[in-house]
Structures are given as structure tokens and as C-alpha cells.
């Protein structure tokens, strides 16, 4: 079995299994905790609270204007990273092909050159975010091994993706295998660390949105 065969076969199966089982376990453990009823009179109807939850999923993507001067670099860098990462996954032709093979759904991709450029910008934003984490006193204090490991598991697929596009330092098969394996590493780590925020962000924002709508509090 070649490295590529392993990556495409048992490697992928094991990574998928761990990712799905881990996510289900983590979400179930959170959702099964005892709920406290809210008996205080709500300022909004049930529909209003649901609307508040949905609205907050979107509105918290950007901070209020008053906060911008103090957090502009953090917001810009993280937005560049998240948007770039989404473009790479959703608009890269090989990724669309993979999604098509699994789901039968397809859409037009962006030219390879643009994806490579976006990957480069995304990678640069990640390096800047890493330096920020290591140098900013607040982030240094908050950071744990999870932060750095999560960073690494996202950085490697982008890096190997760029290398793969140019086929520079090794052959196509080897680079493709490394790229898939790096993605599998990210999949394996996802349920256990802060990468899980990719899904939790929606639940967390929605929960706060519902709760704040109940009080008519600022969102």
C-alpha cells in the first residue's frame, strides 16, 4: 500500500470515524446537561427570541463600531483568514470535484492561480495571527497547547495545498498524500480542541441571541 493509498483509504476512514464520533460525543455531552427554565416574563415573543438568536449568528461576525479602534488588527486578520480558508475549500477545483464525487453537487470553481494567491494570503494571515498570539500579552496569557496545535493542524493543509499546486519539492502523488494526511490530522483533532468552534460558534451565538432577546438586552 502506497502512502497515497493509505491516505485515501484507511487513513481517511479512521479520520472520518474519529471526527464524527468525537463531534457527536462532545455535542451530546453539552446538550444533555440539565436546562434551567426561564420563568421571568420575556420582553419578546417566542418568534422574537428565535429571530434574536438567528440575528446574532450573523451580527457577531463583526464588532460594534465603538470597539473597532482597539481590535481592528484582530478583526481584519481573523476575517482574512476565515474568508480565505472558505474560498480555498469551496472554490478550489479539486475540492469541488471531491464534493461532487461524494454528494453529486457541483459548482464552478476559481482558477488555480487565484486559489494559490488566496492560499498565500491566508497563510500569511495565519502567520501574523500566530505572532500576535505569541507576542500580545493578553493572548499569550490565554493561550494553551490547544491554540498552537489547532493552528498547526489548519496551517499544514494550506501549506501542503500550495506545495501541491506547484509540485515543487516532491512528486504529485507524494504531495497529494501529504496534503490528504494533513487534512486528516485536522479532522482527527477537530472534535477535541478549539477547532470545534467551527460548529460551536453558531450554537453559542444563537443561545446568547435568544437569551438576550428575552431581556431586550443589547446584541
Amino acid at each position: 500500500m502506497t502512502l497515497l493509498e493509505f491516505a485515501r483509504g484507511p487513513g481517511l476512514q479512521v479520520a472520518l470515524l474519529i471526527m464524527i464520533a468525537g463531534c457527536v460525543w462532545r455535542l451530546t455531552a453539552i446538550l444533555l446537561l440539565r436546562r434551567r427554565p426561564h420563568l421571568g416574563a420575556s420582553r419578546h415573543s417566542r418568534a422574537g427570541r428565535v429571530a434574536g438568536g438567528i440575528a446574532m449568528v450573523f451580527t457577531r461576525s463583526l464588532p460594534r463600531r465603538t470597539f473597532w479602534p482597539r481590535i481592528a488588527s484582530s478583526v481584519i486578520l481573523s476575517t482574512v483568514f476565515h474568508v480565505g480558508f472558505a474560498i480555498i475549500i469551496l472554490c478550489g477545483a479539486p475540492h469541488i470535484l471531491l464534493i461532487h464525487q461524494i454528494t453529486g453537487i457541483s459548482w464552478p470553481g476559481l482558477p488555480k492561480g487565484i486559489i494559490v494567491l488566496v492560499s498565500g494570503v491566508t497563510l500569511a494571515s495565519m502567520i501574523a495571527l500566530l505572532f500576535r498570539r505569541m507576542l500580545h500579552p493578553v493572548m499569550r496569557l490565554l493561550s494553551t497547547i490547544d491554540d498552537y496545535l489547532s493552528w498547526l493542524t489548519v496551517f499544514l493543509p494550506i501549506l501542503t495545498g500550495i506545495l501541491l499546486s506547484g509540485e515543487t519539492i516532491a512528486g504529485y502523488e507524494t504531495l497529494l498524500a501529504l496534503h490528504i494526511l494533513s487534512v486528516e490530522l485536522m479532522m482527527v483533532w477537530l472534535p477535541f480542541g478549539k477547532l470545534m468552534h467551527a460548529g460551536l460558534v453558531f450554537a453559542s451565538r444563537a443561545a446568547m441571541g435568544v437569551n438576550f432577546a428575552r431581556k431586550g438586552a443589547a446584541t
Binding site: R26, I30, P63, F67, I71, S74, S78, R133, H136, V138, M139, L142, S143, T144, D147, K194, M196, H197, L200, V201, A203, S204
Partner: peptide, 9 residues
Amino acid sequence: MESCVHCGR
């Protein structure tokens, strides 16, 4: 508790 990404904002 589960969602914090340690952004420091």
C-alpha cells in the same frame, strides 16, 4: 465554556 477561541478581544 467550550467555545472560547482565546482571541482576547
